[in-house]
Nucleic acid binder design. Structure first.
Length: 326
DNA sequence: ATGGTTTTTACTGCGTC
DNA sequence: GACGCGGTAAAAACCAT
């Protein structure tokens, strides 16, 4: 479950991508406390920082099987159940599905009489499955979330989180007076930020059927009502995306993070838009590493004005100098 | 609504290829 | 002459009050 977690923000450069071989299915993240590497441990249901031991998430449920199978035949023999539950389907994937093939459990064709019966059952089952408005509501919203998430290239776990948020909004009766679309978009926006793979409101607006103002308004509302704790986006979380969109090296990414780090220590960053800071850091880093990109290129991928980049990157470089001046 | 802050828009001047 | 860059002033957007 924990393997499709947040996008991987490569921050290593010392250990030359060697020791990856052992646990390739564990995506690496960084610890919020000491920025060490996080390791997810499905058996204990925890995500732990290797350096400081901080347990980031507890009590995750491992929906996988408790047995191991070494080939397809064993898997067939040991498996007793269907697919794991998922928040991404409106009924968590738990409802009954009647197969479309007119075959019985042994694969034999059904008599015409039985076929008619099955057809009626299918109809009724479908009606019950999506009967009350809540379920239909959810169905539509989750579809939207899925659509927007893939348009924005957001990983599956973000969609799951968005689904959970939406579900809670629905349960707390936050929907009346607000559009399904709006709440769905707001949920996704919140989920992306929470997962450390933020997308700007502008980006959300591009894929949503709802106006920017409404998204922002609904987002604030949902966050307040559900008491979601979402810190302001960390500029660093935008860096990898910009770097890769501009096809720059790891080195640039490292420098950019470093610049943002010192800027943070100096407190230069408060009140400024995280996106602007990230863009400026990437630009400044590209200068420092002789992999120059133009301001307009950066402004393009970051959706930020060149003026802002200029202002910010001066401040970043000043902060850097002040540190060295000590 | 209001005022303070930040970002954007638009424009200008300078140096380089 | 086009392009990249820096700077500025005024407008627009944003946020807390």
């Amino acid at each position: 479950m924990t393997d499709t977690t947040t996008r991987r923000y490569a921050r290593e450069s010392e250990n030359e991508s060697e020791d990856e071989s052992e646990r390739t299915d564990d995506e690496t993240l960084t610890c919020p406390e000491c920025s060490g590497t996080l390791t997810s441990d499905a058996e204990h249901g925890e995500t732990v920082c290797e350096d400081c031991g901080l347990v980031v998430e507890e009590d995750e449920i491992d929906p996988g099987p408790e047995w191991r199978a070494f080939d397809a035949r064993e898997k067939d023999e040991k498996s007793r159940v269907g697919a794991p539950t998922t928040q991404m389907m409106h009924d968590k994937g738990l409802s009954t599905n009647i197969g479309w093939q007119d075959k019985d459990a042994y694969g034999n064709a059904l008599s015409s009489r039985q076929r008619e019966k099955m057809q009626r059952l299918r109809t009724w089952n479908e009606r019950f499955r999506t009967r009350d408005s809540r379920e239909r509501n959810l169905k539509q919203a989750l579809g939207e979330i899925d659509r927007m998430a893939s348009a924005l290239g957001l990983p599956e776990n973000v969609r799951e989180t968005a689904s959970v948020i939406y579900r809670r909004a629905l349960e707390d009766d936050l929907l009346p007076g607000r559009s399904i679309e709006g709440v769905a978009t707001a949920s996704l926006y919140a989920a992306a930020r929470k997962a450390g793979t933020p997308r700007s409101l502008d980006e959300l607006t591009q894929v949503s059927r709802v106006e920017k103002d409404e998204i922002a308004r609904t987002y604030r509302y949902v966050v307040r009502e559900l008491q979601l704790e979402i810190e302001p986006a960390d500029p660093e979380s935008y860096v990898p995306r910009f770097v890769s969109d501009l096809t720059l090296s790891e080195e640039v990414e490292r420098r950019a993070r470093q610049l943002l780090g010192t800027a943070k220590e100096q407190g230069v960053h408060s009140g400024k838009s995280p996106v602007g800071l990230a863009a400026a850091a990437v630009y400044a880093a590209s200068l420092l590493t002789n992999e120059k990109v133009t301001q307009s290129e950066v402004s393009e991928v970051a959706n930020i004005s060149e003026v802002t980049i200029r202002n910010r990157y001066h401040e970043l470089l000043e902060a850097e100098e002040d540190i060295h001046g000590l």
